[in-house]
C-alpha cells in the first residue's frame, strides 16, 4: 500500500509528546504527522508505551508535555488538550472514532444493534426515525451483519460480529480519524482475517485516516501505510510499512520481524 499524501495538508501534527506516570515513563518525545486517508500503525510489545501514546493522541490521557494539533473540519488547527470537554466529546461523536479491543467497551450491550449504530446520529441531532433506521441498516450491511439482526442486542452476537458492529457505530457519522486499539485482538484467526479485510476495504473506500495500535505485525502489514516501532516508551524506528518490515534497520525491529512468519 503506497499512496502520495504530499499534495495535502496533514490532519494531525504531533510535537514532542511525553507522558510520565509519576516518575515512570509512559512515552517520550513522540513527533509525527498524519495525513488524511493515511493509516499509521504503532507496534511494540506490551509495556512499550504504545497504548499510552494512543490514549494521549485521542485525548483520553493528558500528556506531561507536548502538543497534538488537529485540523478541525473548518480548517482551524487546534491543540486537542486545549479543547473544552464539550468540544472534545463533540469531536468524538462526529469527526473521530475509537475502536476498542473489547467491543463491550465501545458498545451499549443493553440496546439493539440498530440503536448502537444510530446513537451518534441522534447525538448530533437526527430526529427522523426512518432515516436513522435506514442508515443503520445500510451500515449493518456494510459490515456484513444481516438486516434481521437490527433489533437484537449485541449480547447475542459473536466476538467478530460485535467488533464489526463497533466499527459501524464509529463510522456512521463519517469521521476523518479513527483510533484502533488492537482491533483484532482476542478473535479467532479466521475471524481476524475477515475483519482485517473488511477494515482495509472501509478505510480505503472512505479515505479514513487511522492510528492502529497492535502487537501483531501482520495487522500492520495489511492495514497501514506507515508504521512506528516503540520500545521502552521511545519510537525507535519509523517509516513506510513495507520498508520497515522488509528492511528493518534497528536490531530490535529486526528481532520483532524475524520472530514472526512473513506474510
Amino acid at each position: 500500500m503506497s499512496q502520495d499524501f504530499s499534495h495535502q495538508d496533514p490532519l494531525l501534527r504531533v510535537e514532542g509528546l511525553t507522558k510520565y506516570y509519576g516518575s515512570r515513563l509512559g512515552c517520550a518525545d513522540v513527533s509525527f504527522e498524519l495525513w488524511p486517508g493515511e493509516v499509521l500503525a504503532i507496534v511494540g510489545e506490551s509495556g512499550s508505551g504504545k497504548t499510552t501514546l494512543l490514549n494521549s493522541l485521542s485525548a483520553t490521557l493528558e500528556p506531561t508535555s507536548g502538543k497534538t494539533m488537529y485540523r478541525m473540519r473548518d480548517g482551524q488547527w487546534r491543540n486537542i488538550y486545549d479543547l473544552s470537554e464539550a468540544e472534545r466529546r463533540f469531536l468524538f461523536r462526529t469527526d473521530w472514532g475509537f475502536v476498542h479491543q473489547d467491543a463491550a467497551m465501545g458498545l451499549r450491550m443493553g440496546v439493539s444493534a440498530g440503536a448502537n449504530v444510530g446513537e451518534r446520529l441522534m447525538a448530533v441531532g437526527d430526529r427522523n426515525y426512518g432515516h436513522i433506521r435506514s442508515t443503520a441498516l445500510d451500515w449493518l450491511g456494510r459490515v456484513e451483519i444481516a438486516a434481521d439482526r437490527i433489533d437484537d442486542q449485541p449480547r447475542s452476537f459473536s466476538g467478530g460480529m460485535r467488533q464489526r458492529l463497533q466499527i459501524a457505530r464509529n463510522l456512521v457519522t463519517g469521521p476523518r480519524l479513527v483510533f484502533m486499539d488492537e482491533p483484532t485482538g482476542g478473535l479467532d484467526v479466521s475471524v481476524q482475517a475477515r475483519l482485517l479485510d473488511l477494515l482495509r476495504g472501509l478505510v480505503g473506500e472512505l479515505g479514513l485516516a487511522a492510528i492502529v495500535v497492535t502487537h501483531d505485525l501482520a495487522v500492520a502489514r495489511l492495514l497501514s501505510h506507515r508504521m512506528m516501532v516503540m520500545k521502552d516508551g521511545h519510537v525507535i524506528e519509523a517509516g513506510l510499512t513495507d520498508r520497515v518490515l522488509d528492511d528493518p534497520r534497528e536490531p530490535y525491529t529486526q528481532l520483532l520481524v524475524s520472530s514472526i512468519l512473513q506474510v
Binding site: R108, G114, A115, G118, R120, M122, D151
Partner: peptide, 21 residues
C-alpha cells in the same frame, strides 16, 4: 456531566428502542 455538555443522544436511543420494539 451529560446535562452540562447537553449530551442527550441517549434519551433518543431510549425512544428509538421503544419504536423498534
Amino acid at each position: 456531566k451529560m446535562h452540562a455538555l447537553e449530551e442527550y443522544g441517549l434519551m433518543h436511543v431510549k425512544l428509538y428502542e421503544d419504536i423498534a420494539r
